[in-house]
Simulated assay, not measured.
Amino acid sequence: MAPSHDDEILVLRAQQGDREAFRMLYGLYLDKVYNRVKSRVPLQYVEDVTQDVFIAVIRSLDSYEHRAQFNTWLYTIVNRQIADFYRRSHEPSGPAIDLDANDSAEVALVYDPGDTEDWPLLQVAFNGLPEHYQEIILLRFADGLSFAEIAEQRAQSLEAVKSLYRRAIQSIREKLNGTQLE
């Protein structure tokens, strides 16, 4: 689901103190935030970091100025809370992207989710990607967006998004092939 005009209306209502509007925003974004956090922090901390994200949203909602889409602003908070988690903890940083939840032929070409021995290598490969490649993969898998939704959200053509995605997957494939996965 791509961000919509309805999100902005809900944000305006929430900024005016409408708790039901905030609950609706929470309902719309909880799974996406949870999946993003799950792709970046160890599983045992996902719920805590997700909670921290929404606490930060509540605290800073009044500062949202509608210059960017709400989900862009929200994902900035998600990234900040993940960074804060790693600053506070002694956990090694790096994504733990959950590709297992997605039945994708593209990912199957890169990684067999049943093969847990290679999981750290996938994390290293993903972490080594440029940020725009990481983002396109997160939008596709963590957020579950279609290519058309990603294109709309990023204000890019559908072909540009597909091309970026293919380059990101190819980059992961090359990084994994550069290491011995056997």
Rank of each mutant, 00 (worst) to 15 (best):
S39N: 07
V46F: 11
S163G: 09
A83D: 12
A142I: 03
P130R: 14
I137N: 05
Y111S: 07
E20A: 10
L61P: 02
R23Y: 06
G178F: 01
V41K: 06
E135Y: 13
N102P: 00
R36F: 02
S63C: 07
N177A: 13
D48S: 10
R154S: 07
V124Q: 06
D112P: 00
V57G: 00
L28M: 11
G178V: 03
I77E: 00
E182Y: 13
Y165E: 07
A155Y: 13
E131G: 03
D103W: 03
E47N: 15
R173F: 15
D7N: 08
L25E: 03
N79F: 12
R36W: 06
F85T: 01
R67G: 04
G114H: 14
R23L: 08
H5N: 10
R13G: 11
L43M: 11
G94Y: 01
I82C: 09
T72L: 13
S4A: 07
R88V: 07
R166V: 10
L121Y: 15
M24C: 11
L30V: 02
N35E: 12
R19F: 11
I137M: 14
W119S: 12
N79V: 09
D52F: 07
R67L: 09
P130T: 10
I9E: 05
L145N: 04
A151G: 04
Q81C: 05
D103I: 00
R23I: 01
R87N: 09
R173L: 14
S63T: 12
R59Q: 13
V110F: 00
R88Y: 09
V46Y: 12
D48K: 09
G114A: 15
T76Y: 04
Y86H: 11
R80K: 14
Q81D: 03
L176C: 06
H90L: 15
I82T: 07
E152Q: 12
Q134F: 06
Y34Q: 10
L122Y: 03
V41D: 08
R140D: 02
R166F: 13
L164N: 12
D112R: 08
L138W: 04
F22I: 08
A56K: 07
A14D: 09
I169T: 04
E106V: 11
S171R: 05
I58C: 06
L176V: 04
D100I: 01
T50W: 01
E65L: 07
I169R: 08
I9P: 00
A151V: 03
I97W: 04
Y111H: 10
G178C: 01
Q123S: 13
A148W: 07
V33D: 00
K38G: 05
R40D: 04
V107K: 09
L28I: 10
P120Q: 09
Q16D: 11
F147Y: 14
V46I: 13
